[in-house]
Amino acid sequence: MLRYAVRRLLGAIPTLFVIITLAFFLMRVAPGGPFDQERTLEPTVMANLNKAFHLDRPLYEQYAVYLGNLLRGDLGPSFVYRDFSVGELLGAGLPISMLLGACALLLALLVGGTLGIIAALKQNSTVDYLVIAVATFGITVPNFVVAPVLSLVFGVWLGILPAGGWEGAHPAYMLLPVITLALPQIAIVARLIRGAMLEALRSDHVRTARAYGLPARLVVIVHSLRGAALPVISYLGPAAAALLTGSVVVETIFGIPGIGRYFVQGALNRDYTLVMGTVVIVAVFVVLFNLAVDLLYAAIDPRVRYD
């Protein structure tokens, strides 16, 4: 298993390399530059700025320098947020994004899992239809509608929660963003669990377990849920990577200083290093979580073996 994990991690290096290369050159091909402003700068100032950030060198040289620095863990200076390095910006924002994402993930698993199991156990009952309706709602309504509406209802009309802002990891400021992030995930997890549970409950090994007279709770939790967890886990791999790296909508609406905003802002401001930093972080998360999914698969399903 350990050898497998190491091999997978090594195998991810070419993928990361391709993504970084593509992102680097695509970003540079785009017209405009980081120092374009409404008022054009003096040519000498511009030249000096370009020189200071090594933008005057040939592109392949910049690329080589970037890769070299990246290997040493240096993401470079931000072009737009002066006096900050990309590493500092991401280091400050990432824990916040990750905290919110992890809470949302946990909430999605708990609520979505419970709803899915209940719906599957009471198939075609009112509860089942209610869960399906909630799931459809969660999948259909986009987060940029959910976030301001939640903020309006709880923050402005009822006034029981802050409509936005960030005061450290204070639960009151986290609640609405976490719910917004979790809602679509709850819906998808509930749907997946329901479908997989329905199948698992009809399978031979569950029928055998029942025939042995095992208690119903044990049959559901141990024997059925184990099989039903597989599709959820393979969904959650990439979803967790996306959740933990922040959401531009949620962070914009609730005014949260995470890293979700940097991607869009960075691309629009041509803050090359910031965009590259975000791309690297997201790509690393995706690779890691896909690996975690595969390892969990082996842990849950003994038929899956890696060697």
Partner: peptide, 12 residues
Amino acid sequence: LPFIFFVILLVV
């Protein structure tokens, strides 16, 4: 490639 990255590049 991250999809939103692609789209933003298209906008650019």
